[in-house]
Design a protein around this nucleic acid. Sequence first.
DNA 1: CTGAAAGCGCTTACAG
DNA 2: CTGAAAGCGCTTACAG
Lengths: 345, 345
Amino acid sequence: MKRPTIADIAREAGVSKGAVSYALNGQPGVSDTTRRRILDIAAAWEFRANSAARALAGAASHVVGLTLHRPPKTLGIEPFFMELISGLEAELSIHDYALLLHMVPDHAAEVAVYQRWWADRSVDGVLVCDLRIGDGRVAALAELGLPAVVIGPPSASGSLASIWSDDEISLVEAVEYLAALGHRRIARIGGIPDLVHTSIRTDAFSRVCREVPLDSAVTIPTDYTGESGAAATRRILSRPDRPSALIYDNDIMAVAGLAVAQEMGLSVPGDLSIVAWDDSPICRLVHPPLTALTRDIGAYGTHAARLLLAAIGGELALDSAAVSVHDEPARLVPRGSTAPPVTAA
Amino acid sequence: MKRPTIADIAREAGVSKGAVSYALNGQPGVSDTTRRRILDIAAAWEFRANSAARALAGAASHVVGLTLHRPPKTLGIEPFFMELISGLEAELSIHDYALLLHMVPDHAAEVAVYQRWWADRSVDGVLVCDLRIGDGRVAALAELGLPAVVIGPPSASGSLASIWSDDEISLVEAVEYLAALGHRRIARIGGIPDLVHTSIRTDAFSRVCREVPLDSAVTIPTDYTGESGAAATRRILSRPDRPSALIYDNDIMAVAGLAVAQEMGLSVPGDLSIVAWDDSPICRLVHPPLTALTRDIGAYGTHAARLLLAAIGGELALDSAAVSVHDEPARLVPRGSTAPPVTAA
DNA sequence: CTGAAAGCGCTTACAG
DNA sequence: CTGAAAGCGCTTACAG
């Protein structure tokens, strides 16, 4: 049998198409008993509105857009994104929303995609990741008026709603833990410098290291790949005053760093303690297992989706200050890769 | 300024809307000079057809669907999927196709999504992954008539087009290499048993081991997670007649297995050789770097997209035998984790 | 080869 | 509270 339309339901219920539409969308304009009858028929027939017709008539498309940067050259971000997408989808499915994915080479192309999506009304809103310093996407989105949620710090999200976890808190926790173990020379193998969250971590690192205080605290920038993490590790461990502990901005670099240390004949955690940011299964698979800053990325995605849905629904007061949700910060999970330094200063 | 419609173009060109539609879609019904003029105006105005209107009117949606199983509990499959999606998108973007992603809990839900997508015409075709033995999706898709491409062996793809790389060839290459090094007791830490490609590998493994021949050749099933790979490794290495070489069905389990071996005081590759199937960056980051079966997953995705687009375009003769494309098989890249066994039999 | 028209399935003012 | 109608922007028979 053919798929039912609102015309079929209207006929069955003995009302007009308009009444069916109002009933289905929870709009006023139909009596409660009529609404009930219409809803029952729709449920019995497993009615689902044709999305193209709905979009054409100017209603919501029930699709949310996400752009990803190609190529995802760093494995490090991949587990993060898959978990994020999984969490996003969990929430979106509940509300009958679909996720439209599009790979883009750069920010300019990304903005062009946003414009087209919005002109088409093929999406109701978008999610923005990996904010850079001076990122043009925020302003472009605000001007378009496309509902959007930034997955990143509110400091760089302009008038857009944002969700983020406070990296500063997590970084402080890691440094204070290492300091409590007796470490006085800590280095950080950082992420891509012009990512906003990297710069937040870098600032927090230098501040907390001044406060503790430590004897030395440097950040070495990388491009997040295992290779660059390995190279940075090699460089810093070759110094005469090499650090006794390293904090890595992602798990892949931490794994690579562990291999470098072992290669150089250093024992972990005896000669060197290692902390990884983000905690995919690999952190538990290597030997010793890595102390890591863990967070529930799936939940992060779910919350982001919830926020975007609220923005789409107009539940976020757009005229007032931008809404910003703070998710749980990553918390330290000590494992075998951290211990007091063997030779105290 | 508002987005141009075909009515605007028709007015500008002095023709009817129908003529514009024919010209834009490369249909006959307009003279070449008229077509040229229409196309020029469309290009100058950067015209893009409203996708909802196009879908409503019964044309192609220019969207391709992909369902993923939630939760992606195994990190092992995540890098694979991100690379696959990246490759898919590369080809889809060229043809102005978008990718609609949807997480599903199981195959029944997946089939329901297909039905809805197709009834809606919200997708023009779908990609199917991870075929199971007795998988109901193939028959459901064939019955629906939804254009689809299976990423998997043609033996289980029924009447659907399929693309796959021959796992048997790769497995034989790995076993013969290990045998040439002098190994006579090889075990395989396999994937999920009821996945079709796992069973192909398992069959190939027992066949080639009989042919070489080896003294012992067992496959231990796992669920693809690092944990189960570690457990399987621990079990098999505890046997009195433990193997001198292990082949893992994914890279995550291989990394986990390496850690287990080291934990148990075995040196790699001295006491134990390790081969990983699939070759994400982690294989090169551990110590020693892992010998792996490498393939270009991005290209695999690109080819799959190309095949699906052909299926959508009706270029695949549907009445004749199902089309099956063989992509390059994974090839062995020897690294530090494989060597002749120290104690020859 | 071209034009005028119906129709896809919705939503939403507009009258009753 | 309800019904009849226009319109969203396309595609596609159907006449000329």
